[in-house]
């Protein structure tokens, strides 16, 4: 399908990749994720037309507009199934999905679970600001108990979701946590997720300066907090250990909590298809179909 292999190229510069100027508020954490996405693409020398940037709806999901790549701004919560359709039919692309905590864990919660267990080969970065930014400060599924929002004026009462636990429990094969205030770490997590064969999930704390200022100060050394990496002796293939580590109180740890090798859905489907293709590879589609019609004579 690739008609572009022969094109001679200069390495991509940041200005090649930057599209519309981001509409995010000054200081919004999402800026760092965008900057490091550019860096990731530049570092990896990915061909520009092979990048697909997909998102749902939310402040964070505006992401694709700011990138010069084939992009999709889909509907709220459904970026993952959309991207699954792309991933399954166009394995030649480098596929990145971005979104917010509401998009991922509330309206898209079901898809997050199933994309995890299906192990779709793509990279998913959730910019978790623990609030609904775009709709101006309602409680999100990751808002801590007591968080005062427009829908919880007396403080949030529902138990927040722990995205890392959720992902491990759902059968994800790459589960990492990072924060927008540590660019080096953020980039290394994105690189690791991209290199992972299967569903590479990253929860990136990304502060909403507008509606939840200071939410993650406790993880930011510049604000007097502590950035604790996943302990060196942590075994990322140990599910229960990863689960326990994810249960530490905020600000918790950062790094790869869990990573295992399991064939992606693409791999599994390829194996199934290979069996059929042994018999049909040399046939034209109409000849394959004719076999069915002959049975209905």
């Amino acid at each position: 399908m690739s008609a572009t292999a022969e094109i001679t190229r200069e390495p991509l510069k940041k200005k090649d990749l930057a599209a519309d100027h981001p509409t995010w508020c000054p200081g919004c954490g999402d800026f760092s994720v965008l900057a490091l996405y550019f860096k990731l693409i530049q570092n990896r020398g990915i061909h520009q037309e092979k990048i697909a940037t997909v998102a749902g709806i939310g402040c964070s999901s505006r992401f694709p507009y700011f990138v010069q790549s084939h992009g999709v701004h889909f509907i709220h919560g459904r970026a993952l199934p959309f991207a699954t359709g792309v991933a399954m039919s166009r394995p030649d692309l480098d596929l990145f999905v971005f979104g917010g905590d509401g998009d991922a864990f509330s309206i898209g919660g079901n898809h997050f679970t199933h994309c995890s267990r299906k192990n779709i080969n793509l990279t998913y970065v959730v910019m978790d600001n623990s609030v609904y930014g775009l709709t101006k400060k309602q409680t999100s599924p990751t808002s801590p108990i007591g968080f005062k929002s427009k829908t919880d004026m007396w403080g949030a009462v529902d138990q927040p979701i722990n995205p890392i636990k959720q992902a491990i429990f759902a059968g994800a094969t790459f589960v990492a946590r990072t924060t927008h205030t540590n660019p080096k770490h953020l980039l290394s997590m994105m690189e690791a997720a991209m290199d992972h064969n299967g569903f590479g999930f990253i929860e990136c704390l990304s502060e909403c300066t507008e509606f939840y200022n200071g939410a993650f100060d406790a993880s930011n050394p510049r604000k007097g907090g502590e950035f604790l990496e996943v302990p060196e002796d942590h075994d990322p293939t140990n599910e229960t250990e990863a689960y326990d580590l994810a249960g530490q109180p905020f600000p918790g740890h950062f790094g790869i909590f869990y990573q295992v090798d399991r064939p992606s859905k693409q791999d599994r489907e390829k194996t199934i298809n290979a069996k059929f293709l042994e018999k049909t590879r040399d046939l034209e589609p109409h000849q394959i179909l004719q076999q069915n019609f002959d049975k209905m004579k």
Binding site: V72, P81, F82, V86, N110
Partner: peptide, 17 residues
């Protein structure tokens, strides 16, 4: 798929592909 919303989204994704 897990539900019809995922199914239609996936099909649209493949169509965009």
């Amino acid at each position: 798929c897990e539900d019809e919303i995922a199914a239609v989204s996936m099909a649209i994704g493949a169509g965009w592909g």
